[in-house]
């Protein structure tokens, strides 16, 4: 095979892998965000036991490597034979739970950065605590959180490459297959790297756009 052939034959396959990567990423990041928001609110709830539950979750995730979490969920939980998770589901769950812990800290810090006077003003009008959070605190907090949320999303996107070790046919897995099939490791891994880079770059542009749209006047 000549040089051009390697790229033209491998590229569509790598793009198939990219589809899997993006599919897992999008679902996991949305789930992760919902988990993060819920955990942040638990962390700030006026009930100690809820704060603890949230803190234990965050500490457990932050204190262990991603790959261990992945093995625990895929091999560990499946070995109990209570439920059976396929590798894609296990991958999505791991990324979501992992991102959720980091998101929750970002969201908690964002909420706490909003001046107490905002809540007081909202409550003094007669809004409930949920309404104050929803209409006054969170919209302001999200604007401040956006750069850090983008950052964590990029990290999570890159974390999905580790899912290749449980046999998910993502971009990295396809890269591995192509690299060993073609003996063109240098080119294949360069292309894989460029694809990740382009996707993340586009994500950054999108994030900047969103940030500008929501900028505080």
């Amino acid at each position: 095979m000549n040089r051009v052939d390697v790229i033209t034959s491998a590229f569509p396959i790598l793009l198939e892998g990219l589809k899997v990567t993006l599919y897992i990423f999008v679902i996991a990041i949305i789930l992760g965000f919902i988990i993060g928001l819920a955990v942040a609110l638990l962390r700030l709830a006026p009930l100690k036991i809820l704060n603890w539950v949230a803190k234990i979750y965050v500490d457990a995730i932050r204190g262990t490597p991603f790959i261990v979490q992945l093995f625990f969920i895929y091999f560990g939980i499946n070995s109990l034979q209570i439920i059976s998770l396929n590798n894609t589901t296990a991958g999505i769950i791991t990324v979501a739970i992992n991102a959720g812990a980091y998101f929750s800290e970002i969201i908690r810090a964002g909420i706490q950065s909003i001046d107490k006077g905002q809540t007081e003003a909202a409550r003094s009008i007669g809004l409930t605590s949920v309404q104050s959070m929803r209409f006054v605190v969170l919209p302001q907090a999200f604007r401040r959180m956006l750069p850090t949320i983008t950052n964590q999303s990029i990290i999570s996107l890159k974390d999905t490459s580790l899912l290749s070790v449980i046999g998910i046919a993502d971009l990295t897995q396809q890269g591995q297959i192509q690299a060993s099939a073609t003996f063109e490791a240098f080119k294949i891994w360069l292309i894989v790297g460029v694809i990740y880079f382009v996707v993340i770059y586009l994500l950054t542009i999108l994030a900047n756009f969103v940030e500008r749209r929501f900028q505080l006047r």
Binding site: A121, I125, G126, L127, P139
Partner: peptide, 28 residues
């Protein structure tokens, strides 16, 4: 919350909602 609707409050630091227009602040 019901009682607070009957009691308006004005703060030293204004505490307007910066992400909302003047009109939205009042209509919220």
């Amino acid at each position: 919350n019901k009682v607070r609707q009957e009691v308006g409050m004005v703060f030293q630091q204004f505490n307007l909602f910066p992400h909302k227009t003047v009109l939205e602040n009042i209509t919220l």
